[in-house]
């Protein structure tokens, strides 16, 4: 019983993080019908930015509100800018080309980032060496939120623990998701986004600045991903170049399960995946963790390929 509760809590905590990443996939798919393979790797870059900021900021600011805010904000801004760059120089020139070209480009970017970051590269300037590329080894992520058990229930060997970072991630993720929902349905930008996702050529005819809306969507998705990546790194207490690929893939699976293009669907899919993974790992062995998501994906595609909340979209003929 305690074990079950603990798995439930851990699963939900993991699920909310997947959800933030999944939102990025779903939004970009919504406006461009492109699986942005590089999304997870943009997230990874964001985590390294956060790592660098925390490192420069110094240990004494860890655990303070201002310190945490600084790390998150800088990392999210950097990621938004990075997402914008990728959209502008890699995807926009290919927008009217066959879909396969953008997909291959996305795969290429993902590959370049996740393996580029595995190289060791440092420059020596004035005696100090500056790391440019971090190398393949996993690094300990600074404890910007000092781990603390906020809640403990039960006796020593049979207990449920809720950590402070779990609660904080949950709150941040929930706030961002609510904010996103408001943005999509209550603002002009959201309305424009929905118009573009319906048909970007028609939207352009109606005077909607399609380029700006798509760029904005990328920035938004990338910022959310950076936030998710930081939360994940805090939970995992480590950061490594391949994390983007793995988390990204799972988040993508979550988006497909929920019905890609559907914002609440992505959240539900991510929570379902987080729980599923946690329970499978909890009751069997952690070495099967990576297989769960894809097994789940294949089952969903077999039974309900449009996802739980997605609708079959016929191509306009």
């Amino acid at each position: 019983m305690y074990g079950f509760l603990q798995h439930l809590i851990n699963g939900l905590a993991a699920g909310t993080i997947y959800a933030l990443v999944a939102l990025g996939y779903t939004m970009v798919y919504g406006v461009l019908k492109l699986i942005n393979f590089a999304h997870g790797d943009v997230m990874m870059v964001g985590v390294y930015v956060g790592y660098a900021v925390a490192f420069l900021m110094g240990r004494e600011h860890f655990g303070t509100f201002a310190g945490v805010m600084l790390v998150f904000l800088v990392s999210m801004l950097a990621c938004a800018a990075f997402g914008l760059l990728i959209e502008r120089f890699a995807y926009r020139p290919l927008r009217e080309k066959p879909r396969l070209t953008s997909l291959i480009t996305a795969i290429g970017i993902s590959f370049a980032l996740s393996y580029g970051f595995q190289l060791d590269l440092a420059v020596n300037l004035g005696g100090t060496s500056y790391t440019l590329l971090p190398g393949a080894a996993s690094r300990a992520f600074p404890e910007i939120i000092v781990p603390n058990q906020w809640f403990e229930f039960g006796s020593d060997d049979q207990s449920v623990i809720i950590w402070n970072w779990q609660v904080i991630s949950f709150l941040i993720a929930a706030a961002l998701m609510v904010g996103l929902q408001l943005l999509v349905f209550k603002t002009r930008f959201g309305r424009a986004m929905r118009a573009v996702s319906f048909d970007h050529r028609v939207a352009a005819l109606l005077g909607i600045p399609v380029d700006r809306v798509i760029a904005g969507t990328f920035m938004l998705g990338s910022a959310l991903a950076a936030c998710a990546g930081l939360l994940y790194a805090i939970k995992d207490t480590s950061v490594q170049p391949l994390m983007g690929m793995y988390i990204g893939l799972k988040a993508f699976v979550a988006a497909v399960i929920g019905g890609i293009g559907n914002v609440p669907g992505a959240v539900v899919g991510a929570l379902a995946l987080g729980l599923c993974e946690e329970f499978v790992v909890g009751y069997t062995s952690s070495s099967w963790r990576d297989a769960v998501a894809f097994g789940f994906l294949i089952l969903v595609l077999l039974a309900k390929p449009e996802g739980l909340f997605g609708r079959v979209q016929a191509e306009k003929v």
Partner: peptide
């Protein structure tokens, strides 16, 4: 069978996933 009834990009994800599953199975 499940992925090719859908659009081409689903195949990309499913095959990627398949590669990972095979690796996990072999390692275990």
């Amino acid at each position: 069978l499940p992925s090719l009834r859908l659009r081409g990009d689903y195949l990309a994800i499913v095959t990627l996933g398949f590669g990972e599953i095979i690796r996990v199975i072999v390692q275990n």
